[in-house]
């Protein structure tokens, strides 16, 4: 479904991502692991045209989307749930959700909103509250729900577990498993190994902007490649 080939991203003199290639098949959950600064976030941003690409070809559902801008990518069916959630703190939950479906018609928005409220009952009761008042775990759920409002076929998530208590992580994990079961492909950047083990079939390991290992998750996690990446020793 998603094929990223030879992606390079530089910010001025720094190269954040160097020739990264990865694929995510439809209906799967793919993990992207690595230490801080390994280039995981930049990779996701690069896929969504939010970071300057020096090179790389991106294919989605068979079509070449390399030249697409962010709006076009979202319309094509890719959505990103960014690091630290980034809800609009002084806007109501409902407004936040509606923004996820920006660009679609009013009827579509309302339908999807209703579906979201059906799925997440507690959100419906607090829909008028400013999003900034929610707890971390609740914000994460709303952020995921907001990303889902664009009806993506591929959902990119940047460290959804960061800053959350173990209980909240489990809840988020359950939500993500649900979404995956429904058929949406997920690319999950994560440092929480338990979450990765529970959700991801395959994963990539990034270090210093490059892919150092990839493969089925159980093997990968028992491999020294992963601990190397996290501890910063060269692969």
């Amino acid at each position: 479904m998603l094929d990223v080939h030879d992606l390079t991203i530089t910010f001025g003199p720094t190269t954040a991502v160097r020739g990264v290639s990865l694929t995510a098949a439809a209906g799967t959950v793919t993990g992207v692991l690595g230490a801080n600064g390994a280039g995981k976030t930049s990779t996701l941003l690069g896929i969504l045209a939010r970071a300057p690409r020096q090179s790389g070809r991106i294919t989605f559902d068979g079509a070449d989307v390399t030249g697409f801008d962010t709006g076009a990518l979202v319309r094509a069916g890719i959505a990103l749930c960014p690091e630290n959630r980034r809800l609009f703190p002084n806007m109501s939950i409902e407004d936040n959700l509606l923004l996820g479906a920006y660009g679609t018609g009013r009827a579509t928005r309302r339908t999807r909103l209703r579906d979201t409220y059906d799925r997440f009952g507690w959100v419906a009761t607090r829909r008028a509250e400013p999003a900034g008042r929610l707890s971390g775990g609740q914000q994460q759920t709303v952020a995921i729900a907001r990303a889902l409002m664009s009806a993506p076929r591929l959902l990119l998530l940047d460290e959804p577990s960061s800053g959350l208590s173990p209980v909240a992580v489990d809840e988020v994990g359950a939500v993500l498993a649900d979404i995956a079961r429904d058929g949406t492909a997920l690319v999950l950047v994560e440092q929480n190994v338990r979450l990765v083990r529970a959700l991801c079939a395959t994963a990539y390991v990034l270090a210093h902007g490059q892919v150092t290992a990839s493969g089925p998750v159980p093997e990968l996690l028992s491999d020294t490649a992963v601990s190397d990446a996290y501890l910063g020793t060269t692969a």
């Binding site: 990518l73 979202v74 609009f88």
Partner: peptide, 15 residues
């Protein structure tokens, strides 16, 4: 309103 609160997050949503 969203752009004023967090420009990048708004851009990520495709606005």
């Amino acid at each position: 309103r969203a752009v004023a609160q967090d420009r990048e997050a708004a851009a990520i949503l495709g606005i």
